[in-house]
Simulated assay, not measured.
Amino acid sequence: MDTNEEKVSLLLEMIAFSTVDGKLHKREYDFLYLVADELNIEKEDFNDLFHQELPKIVIKTEFQRIQQFYRLALLMHVDQILHKKEEIAIQQIAVDMGLNPFSTKRILQMMKKAPNAIIPPEVLLHVFQEQQN
Rank of each mutant, 00 (worst) to 15 (best):
L75K: 00
I90S: 04
I90Q: 03
L108P: 00
L74H: 07
Q64Y: 07
A16I: 10
A36G: 08
V78M: 06
S103Q: 08
L24I: 08
A94S: 10
I90K: 04
K85W: 02
E87V: 01
I88T: 08
P115M: 10
D30V: 05
I66R: 05
L32R: 00
M14I: 01
G22N: 13
I90N: 02
D21Y: 01
Y29F: 15
N47L: 13
L24S: 03
F17S: 06
F46C: 13
I93M: 04
R71L: 15
R71K: 13
L12T: 08
E44K: 14
L32D: 03
A94G: 00
D48V: 05
N40R: 12
K113D: 07
V35L: 12
L12D: 05
A89E: 02
Q64M: 15
L74K: 06
P55D: 06
N47T: 11
V35K: 12
I88A: 13
K84W: 02
I41Q: 02
E44M: 14
Q109P: 01
A94Y: 00
M76H: 00
V78L: 04
T61W: 01
F50M: 09
G22C: 09
D21P: 04
V35S: 09
K60V: 14
E86W: 00
M14N: 02
L39Y: 09
L39S: 05
I57Q: 08
D45L: 11
D37A: 15
I90A: 08
I15Y: 02
R65K: 15
E86A: 04
D21W: 00
L74C: 10
A16F: 03
D45H: 11
R71A: 10
D96H: 11
M110N: 09
V58T: 14
V58C: 08
E87P: 00
D21M: 05
E87N: 00
A94K: 00
L82D: 07
K105M: 14
S18G: 11
K56C: 11
P115D: 14
R27S: 13
M111E: 06
G98R: 04
L99G: 02
S18Y: 02
Q67R: 12
M76C: 09
M111Q: 12
D48Q: 10
Q64P: 01
N100E: 11
V58H: 09
K84F: 04
F63E: 15
S18A: 13
F31E: 02
L32A: 07
Q52K: 15
D79G: 01
Q109L: 13
D48N: 11
V58R: 12
T61K: 03
E28G: 04
K60I: 13
I81A: 15
K23R: 15
G98T: 03
K23Q: 12
L72T: 12
L75M: 04
L39V: 06
N100W: 01
K105Q: 10
V95H: 10
I66H: 05
E28N: 07
L82I: 15
F17K: 08
D30H: 07
H83Q: 04
E62W: 02
D48L: 12
G98I: 03
L34S: 14
K60E: 15
D21L: 09
L54A: 15
I57L: 15
I59H: 00
S18I: 01
K105I: 07
F17Y: 07
E28K: 09
K84V: 05
E44S: 14
R65Y: 03
S18W: 01
R27G: 02
S103P: 01
L32M: 10
P101R: 08
F50L: 08
N100G: 09
N100Y: 03
F31D: 05
I81G: 06
S18N: 03
L82A: 13
